Amino acid sequence: MKQEIAFIKREELKEKPDTASLGFGKYYSDYMFVMDYHSQNGWYDPRITPYEPLTLDPAAMVFHYGQAIFEGMKAYKAADESIQLFRPEKNMKRLNDSCDRLCIPQIDEDFLLRAIKQLILTEKDWVPDGEGTSLYIRPFIFSTETYLGVRPANQYKLLVILSPSGAYYGDQLSPVKIYVEEQYVRAVIGGVGHVKTAGNYAASMKAQEKADANGYAQILWLDAKENKYVEEVGSMNIFFKINGEVVTPKLNGSILPGVTRDSVIQLLRHWNIPVREEKISIEEVYAAHERGELEEVFGAGTAAVISPVGELNWNDDTIVINDHKIGQLSQDIYDEITGIQLGKKEDPFNWTVNVAAVEV
């Protein structure tokens, strides 16, 4: 795609929020990227425009049949003041995987990444530099065609919005409490659990309400068929350190292939720490705790990076992990990944991309 990206200037810029009170997903930058699709001419009219509300017809197909997908990425202010992205090509590929599963037209991954870089350079003053902060990047696509028949739409809109954010869970490395869900399921093999579609998250909210009411930060989902094998947490993949080895559920078609998940696995192998991707039941996790071998549990995801787990509740049976303290391995992984993201540590994997150093 050789299209030029148009720029529509905003009349008045917003006041930047206080870095100390950012939270997650509360504030949005001055501009957003927009591009449209029609089956007759493909993706067209790429533009950076002022952030503003959208106008959609009540019969827009997204409202009725849910063709909506998204990605989550971050930009970081590095120690040398440059702006870094972390493995963005993985997000572009996963976005296209989601497009394929939801019958949405494929995007040009290189072009969209170029557009995101251009948007970030336009909004470089929105990239925070406080401890634990970042610029959250949300690309998303949804159907806009006006039609009430059930079929893939012929028209779509792609947007990218930016949100300066702090830690996802507040105190970033304070261990969270996780509720193991028994009644509801997140996804089935053959469904859409392996892609980032909006409906996955809508379906999770009932269980999350129950967890919230009982004082738990997140849900740990079990498999839909046997209701025994661990899958993932609501916003993260999950890892267990058992007797010196790290185990994480194997990707099976109902688990999201997280970019941070893959980074953790590569990092552990680089450190020669045993790591296995395999089915693991909740019974095995509890049995390991009973034997005194469950050393650490942590989640991994873009929003939180690494989130240690201090407590699990399954069928009203509560276990405490590492005395509600972050484990050494969780801390080491967090320090290494964030150090690479911020340019403070060597990047032997070539994971980071300097936004300004790449032609846009």
Rank of each mutant, 00 (worst) to 15 (best):
K2T: 09
I5N: 07
A6K: 15
P17R: 09
D18G: 00
A20Q: 14
L22R: 10
L22E: 02
S29E: 06
V34I: 13
Y37S: 12
W43V: 13
D45W: 11
R47H: 13
T49Y: 04
Y51D: 08
L54M: 12
L56P: 00
P58Y: 06
Y65N: 06
Q67V: 05
A78S: 10
R94P: 00
D97K: 05
S98T: 01
C99D: 05
D100K: 14
F111A: 03
E123G: 07
E131N: 11
Y136T: 03
I141S: 04
I141G: 02
V150P: 03
R151E: 07
I161Y: 01
P164T: 08
G166M: 06
S174E: 13
E181S: 09
E182R: 12
Q183R: 09
I189R: 06
G191R: 00
T197K: 02
A203Y: 03
Q218C: 05
L220V: 04
E226R: 11
N227R: 15
K228P: 01
V230G: 09
G253E: 08
E277D: 02
A288S: 11
E290G: 07
A300E: 01
G310L: 05
N315I: 07
N315D: 09
D316G: 02
D316E: 14
D316V: 02
D316W: 02
Q331S: 12
I333N: 04
G339N: 14
I340M: 15
Q341D: 09
L342V: 14
E346L: 13
F349I: 06
V353M: 11
A357I: 09
V358A: 02
